[in-house]
């Protein structure tokens, strides 16, 4: 990473009662860089992302976007800041009560003040960019398969041409072929927009494919980070155990006897 980071996280802490989820996490993401954060379930990946995009307020620490401190922002300022962001949720999080094109156009109409007809045209064009025809635009989210919902979610995330795109478990719940299709679309969309991307996943095939840099989170801290092509030779026993999916190693699952 060269130059000032697009996103800079320092000493991020977040607890829920006695449970410490983030414990002084540091992470930088460069402009136009694609960083994938890997880690097991419950290690703090989702909480980290929610703090960065303002869905959760951290207990302590600093989050800077384009050099601007964003922790403690007022809601109105946060809404303005969110125009820089697009997010693909794990379950797509499409609005059930709106048709597909209305979902994709939602951010354009509500966040950017684009007229309805223009937004609809952009939505149909964006659906085309993720491999969905105009006939899908009039369907309801419940009429789509899981893979199609993810693609519509991706279209919604990129429709307003955001500067930063966040991907939360983009391939979870999809078959391997559809997972790879989504990975290709993520690479294409991020490249076409020149956007900065943060993804969280525990799908190593996806991480290898979409990442410029991979960081591993464990017990609320980044314990290793480096270029995606060096992860197989990380020399870190935690990373080794995770990427090879071994039950034996320093990461212990708390299992009690029956």
């Amino acid at each position: 990473m060269t130059g000032a980071p697009k996103i800079s996280v320092r000493g991020l802490k977040k607890s829920f009662g006695p449970k410490v989820v983030l414990d002084g996490l540091d992470l930088d993401v460069g402009v136009g860089e694609s960083v994938v954060v890997i880690g097991g379930s419950g290690t703090g990946k989702s909480v980290m992302v929610k703090c960065i995009i303002g869905l959760m307020e951290p207990d302590a620490g600093s989050i800077k976007i384009d050099g601007q401190e964003v922790t403690g922002l007022k809601r109105s300022e946060r809404e303005k800041l969110m125009r820089k962001f697009g997010m693909l949720f794990q379950g797509a999080a499409l609005f059930d009560s709106l048709r597909v094109w209305q979902n994709v156009a939602f951010g354009l109409i509500q966040g950017h003040g684009v007229g309805k007809e223009e937004a609809r045209a952009i939505a149909i064009k964006t659906l085309g960019a993720v491999g969905l025809g105009p006939e899908v635009a009039e369907l309801w989210p419940a009429e789509l398969s899981g893979g199609m919902q993810k693609r519509v979610g991706l279209a919604r995330a990129i429709a307003a041409k955001p500067e930063v795109i966040v991907f939360d478990e983009p391939t979870t719940g999809l078959d391997p072929i559809m997972g790879d299709v989504i990975n290709d679309l993520i690479i294409k969309c991020v490249r076409d927009l020149g956007a900065t991307a943060i993804s969280i996943t525990h799908d190593m095939a996806s991480a290898h494919k979409i990442a410029d840099r991979i960081a591993m989170i464990y017990k609320g801290k980044i314990i290793w980070q480096g270029p995606a092509n060096t992860i197989d030779k990380s020399g870190n026993e935690y990373v080794e155990q995770f990427i090879h999916g071994r039950a034996e190693g320093p990461i212990k699952m708390e299992v009690r006897a029956l």
Binding site: G54, A93, D96, Q110, G111
Partner: peptide, 10 residues
């Protein structure tokens, strides 16, 4: 979906 609203500046 409520979190999605927030990420779409709503």
């Amino acid at each position: 979906q409520i979190d999605a609203l927030s990420t779409l500046s709503t």
